[in-house]
Simulated scan of single mutants.
Amino acid sequence: MSDLSTKPELERMQWEIAALTGRMRSVELERDSWRARCDRLTEQRDGEREKSRRLRTSGSYRLGRALVSFARDPFGTSPRLVRGLARRLRPGVPVVPEQASRPPAAKRRPAHLYVALGLDHDGLRDFLVTVNQRLLVTPDHRPVVLTDDPAFALFRKLGVLMEYLPDRATWERHRPDRAWDDLLAERLAQLCRDHHTERTVVVDRLSPPSLADLLR
């Protein structure tokens, strides 16, 4: 009796460890991504510096400075400079219109990953309904639910993004050469990376969270 009562708790602890491992892998990948981005930004900075250097030595730049000088002090500008401006500013030269400023993009809500493994079909449906109720109260995140229910496609109409992972028994029956725990950790890392998740919640299959629990 004691062994039966502790088995679900051990499974939940394994999922939490796998979730933490996946999160750590995601952070490492994100770190490498930021390093690569910094390298690209450094290259772009050096390129912009070179463009700026070439621009300062170009005739267009000198013409622009002359225009600014003439606009600030038209009477103090030398006649030679005025004649040069007149030659450069011929009629018929198209004027490039100023690009319209784009409105700022709306801030995207962060994603929360719910690891809902081991729930039966009805339990998964009830949990998704609870998540939707949670968002109606406070729409502060985008839910991503990881499930091992092969019929999860029936719940797509609920508007929650679903991700699938085969359950342990099914996976070990078809792929005994690869540990299911490793698969879970890699899948969680991939989901954290793909959805930029801010929080990971492991759902207790024996006692799924209520609306009050999700609002805490």
Rank of each mutant, 00 (worst) to 15 (best):
A169M: 08
L4I: 05
G76L: 07
R12T: 04
R125N: 12
A116H: 03
T77E: 15
F127L: 15
A105W: 02
P91Q: 05
L89S: 12
L136T: 12
D120W: 11
G47V: 00
V131S: 01
S52F: 07
D182H: 10
R125D: 10
D120M: 09
A71L: 14
R23A: 14
R53W: 01
S78M: 06
R173Y: 06
A106C: 02
W180K: 03
A86R: 14
D39Y: 02
A169N: 06
I17W: 02
E50S: 10
R109S: 11
D148C: 07
E198L: 08
W15V: 03
S52K: 12
L67G: 02
V137W: 08
L81H: 07
P209K: 02
R88A: 15
G76D: 11
D181R: 08
L20Q: 05
A179Y: 02
G76W: 12
D213W: 06
S2R: 13
G118I: 03
W171N: 06
Q133E: 15
R108D: 09
S58N: 09
L136K: 11
P150Q: 09
G84M: 09
R102Y: 00
G76K: 11
L81T: 15
E16D: 08
V95W: 06
L214C: 06
D126I: 06
V202E: 02
S78N: 09
G47F: 04
V68I: 14
A66F: 08
R175C: 11
R53K: 13
T138Q: 13
R72H: 11
S5F: 08
S33L: 03
T147F: 10
D46G: 01
N132S: 15
F75T: 15
D181G: 07
G22L: 06
L117M: 09
C192T: 00
A212M: 04
R87Y: 04
N132E: 13
L135Q: 11
A116N: 08
E43A: 15
F127K: 04
A86T: 14
F152C: 05
H141A: 14
A111C: 13
P91G: 04
M24N: 06
W171P: 01
A179G: 01
T77Q: 10
A151Q: 13
P208N: 07
M162C: 02
L20P: 00
T200W: 01
S2F: 10
L29W: 05
R23Y: 09
Q133H: 14
W180F: 12
P110V: 12
D140A: 14
G76T: 08
V93I: 13
S5T: 08
S26M: 04
P209I: 03
L81Q: 12
H112C: 08
L119N: 05
